[in-house]
């Protein structure tokens, strides 16, 4: 089903929302991704992924407290939903399962 498919960037963002729990919002996710995965994304890209994930039901959000560094504006805090957690687990599982099926030989590289 199209709605359940988790893209690569989506998975990355979803993971980071989990990591940052309960303080995940746009800029924080962006920073964390840069720190952990070394990928620098534009804030608008992070935003659109977050809203897309919310539409798919993997995330839910609430408005946080206003803060000084945002000119008195509130953050939108994102939290994993049950569906989001399941999607992550499924993705993780599928990956491990597939990885284990790779024959050992294929992974042995020697300097030829």
């Amino acid at each position: 089903m199209k709605g359940n498919y988790l893209g690569e960037l989506e998975e990355l963002v979803l993971l980071h929302v989990g990591i940052l729990h309960p303080d995940a919002y746009g800029v924080a996710v962006m920073d964390e991704i840069e720190k952990q995965a070394g990928r620098s994304l534009n804030i608008s890209a992070v935003h659109s992924v977050l809203t897309r994930l919310e539409e798919k039901g993997f995330l839910k959000s609430k408005m946080g407290d206003p803060s000084q560094e945002r000119g008195g504006r509130r953050k939108r805090i994102f939290l994993l939903t049950a569906a989001g957690k399941r999607a992550l687990e499924e993705a993780n599982e599928l990956r491990t399962q597939l990885f284990n099926q790779i024959p050992k030989v294929a992974l042995q590289f020697r300097l030829a």
Binding site: M63, E69, R73, R74, K75, R76
Partner: peptide
């Protein structure tokens, strides 16, 4: 609010 907030935060 959130978009403007993020933009401001990065700016400051």
């Amino acid at each position: 609010e959130e978009i403007q907030g993020d933009a401001y935060e990065l700016f400051y």
